[in-house]
Design a protein around this nucleic acid. Sequence first.
DNA 1: GCAAGGTC
Length: 623
Amino acid sequence: MKVIIAEKPSVAREIAKVFGATAKKDGYMEGKGYTFTWAFGHLLQLAPPQEYGFYGWNVQNLPMLPPKFKLSIRKVKTKDGIVEDPSVKKQLDTIKTLFDEATEIIVATDAGREGELIFRYIYYYLKCKKPFKRLWISSQTDEAIKEGFRNLKPGTDYDTLFNSAHCRSQSDWLVGMNATQALSISSGSRAVLSLGRVQTPTLAMICSRYLENKNFVPQLYYQVSIQVDKDGQVFRAISADSFKTKEEAQAVVDKVEDVPSGFPNGGHILSVEAKPRKEPPPLLHDLSSLQQEANKRKGFTADQTLGLLQTLYENKLVTYPRTGSRYIGDDVFATVPTLIDKFKEHPEFGKQATFLTGTKLNKRSVNAKKVTDHHAILPTGETPHQLSNDLQAVYDLVAARMLEAFHQECIKEITKITVQSGAIFTASGTVISSAGWRAVLNEPDEEKKDEENASLPKVQQDERLPIPEKSLLEKQTKPKPLYNEASLLKALETAGKEIEDEELRYAMKDSGLGTPATRASIIETLIKRDYIIREKKNLVPTQTGLGVYYVVKDQKIAQAELTGNWEKRLEEIRSGASVNEFQQEIKTYTRNITQELLLAGRNLMAKSKEGVNTPQIVAQKTA
DNA sequence: GCAAGGTC
């Protein structure tokens, strides 16, 4: 009997369906001489410190460098403390029984580093010795699955991929566990002060933005505004220059030839530029972009959105949610018209669904090469029944984005008028001439500047128009806003884009900090540690968070570059470079950072009070 | 008590 093991039940079901196997058993499916079983993500993890004899949190144990890492069953928190997850244990037993009976094992975990690790940890934990083959597909359509099975690879082809995955896992353990204990011990606080390759740079981003924002000194500046009258239709124009002093601006005001000063037609139209701008539809959603949109529109946290999506996924209403791709392949595209058809009766955007059924679909989101493990999030076409308000809201965001993504371009008419009257003034306005995809949610353009006119009257070059009013504007420069969940998610995705070292930047270009599946939990971790709090929609550091930030901010562990560096080395390992060399470097780094933190933590509480102009506005944890 | 990674 051949055993196929997938990363998760949904994939095992898809594959079983292609084979025509339908018999459902406990923890697997069966039919046509095959069994199809699954994991639930990582079933196994690197064993915690005590399993190597490092008991308690003790300086004597540091740095903890296990000679050989062990694996242990994933744990779960219950009222009796932390125990091995019973459902995981049971599934491992099922897998063991199937592997024991297997004549051949086919690995169908996701085609990537972590997918390889998920399988290998199971395989080695169960001490299985049977050879295995690898299914390597990037789309789960029937055709892709069939093609993948015609092209199974020897399992050993992916040994170096496993090496790189295992290195990633060990390195995160070594650096994270040791740095966390070192800082927690040396700070003398009873709380856990955790550090890690991803969470610490994330904390640093939040803290540094917070300090920049709070310490920002606004600069005053001045502009001049005039009203221009075209046959009773008045629009506003602003001086092209801005001025540091009120006097300079007032001098410009004085020169304006307005009606009250005795000039009936003091505004000279120097130029009128009108050009259409085409705005392509947005791409389909991946997890991160959906979390950002749900945060902006509905105020959901990243974690809430992920939870709601998971429920929709388990109810077969949306496709796999933890995807990092905003594209679909041609095979999935072929099903889109049927999907759109299902939304014709939708109260909010049924009209646009109907419109789309009779038009050519935009293919901007169709690109098989940009589909990685999973494609963009789509509704499945199943009819939802009695969703809660929150579930419905997320479901509607998915559905609406599908309609937008395949809709037509939005065409805007952008007009810029230049007026001379003592000085140069400009007025700009935007008019949507064809809504296209913007008709789906039918909402105003969020990026409209306050100075912009909704629409401008038709004026001609060289016209002379009256200026009924002029005024002096006092303005302030503004700081960068605090991070909220949406802007932080975006920043995590693009982290590393500004790294100077070209190789490191390249190594991080497709990853950023963390992964789509983990970013929500990173934010939750920082909150659990009392490093940050939610203040309205913003993410704001606490005294503790700032204290940790001051201790580590100039260290490697607080920089996105660390991930860039690891990614570069891990990729080299995947293509065959020595594992040992990187492991030695990590050990050395672990020793160093542990030593530094054992010393640095002593100053932590004192340091947390430096650096802010007005310390009292630093957020306090509310009981 | 601790990392980051995956998922129900």
